[in-house]
Each structure stands twice: as C-alpha cells, then as structure tokens.
Amino acid sequence: MKDFNMVIAGFGGQGVLFLGKVIAYAGLMDGKEVSWLPSYGPEMRGGTANCSVCISDEPIGSPLVVTPNVLVAMNKPSLDKFINSVAPGGIVLLDSTLINDKVCRDDVKVFYLPATATAEENNMKGLSNIILLGKLFEQTNFCSKESLEKGIAKSVPAKKQHLVATNLKAVEIGASL
C-alpha cells in the first residue's frame, strides 16, 4: 500500500482517537503528509468514537476517509458500521475479546486479535489500542520502526512520558500475536 486511508473506531475511552494520533504522528516523522479527523458531536458523548487517518506522499485531499484500506474496529457497533466500506484488498483488525462475530467478506484480510484480553494478561489495561497498533505495524509497515517510536513519544502527553516504554512493549506484544 502506498497511501494509507484508515478508519479507527470503538467506544469512547478505548483510546481510538489517541491511536489515530500515534499513527498520524508516526507518518509525520517519516516525512509524509498526514491528516487526522475525529467524529465529533453528541454521539461521541453516547459512547462511539472514530477517526480518519491518512498517510500519503501527496497533500491530503479530503481527510474524511470514506473507503478505508485499513479498518481498526474495537467494538461490534464499529465493525458493523464500517465493515462494508472497506476497500477490496483492505486490512481489518478487530478486537476479538469484544467482538465475537466473524467477518463475512472474503475480499479483505481480517486479523482477529484478542487485544483486550492480551492487555489484561500483560498488566497493560487500557493499551488494547496499542496492541492492535503493533499488529498493524507488523502487517503494513505504514512507517519506519523509528518513526513509530517517535510517534508514540510525541503523542503521549508530557506528564505521562513514563508510559512510553509500556506503550512500546505493547507494540511488541501486538506484533507477535
């Protein structure tokens, strides 16, 4: 894949927007053009959140991703909402701890990853998003390893920099799933 058009979706509080920011920052560290666009408004308060992330060599046209080639789905409503919009040949990563369904499409590559369970097993509660990121990175190499690490460091708030190492560990665990 040359251009990445991603949709990352889940419950509010799962770190959906944060994951999108890490990906966008990693792309930026690689010298690419990037954009990040969140859903916003009252439905956010109701629990579902999603964001569009684009990484490209060219300036980003619309930052709203309508036909993603990568979908990260962290709960069932998100999978249901976006699965049919994924471009043929696209990649879908889903958290199989929270989603029991199997994807019916055979023109996309699906990874069923027990991200939430894995996070809990490794005492990394709240990092299921980064575990999924690890697998996404391992599968697509959407950026260099170095840029991924920088992207995490840039996205973690200054006061929480001590969590960067744990995040990097979560990436490793995710990649190995």
Binding site: K21, A24, E33, S35, L37, P38, Y40, I60, P63, L64
Partner: peptide, 10 residues
C-alpha cells in the same frame, strides 16, 4: 468549517 477546525494536520 467543522472539518478544518476538528482535523489535525502537520
């Protein structure tokens, strides 16, 4: 507009 306001870009 809402798109430019909400989006992040370098």
């Amino acid at each position: 507009d809402g798109m430019l306001g909400q989006m992040m870009e370098p």
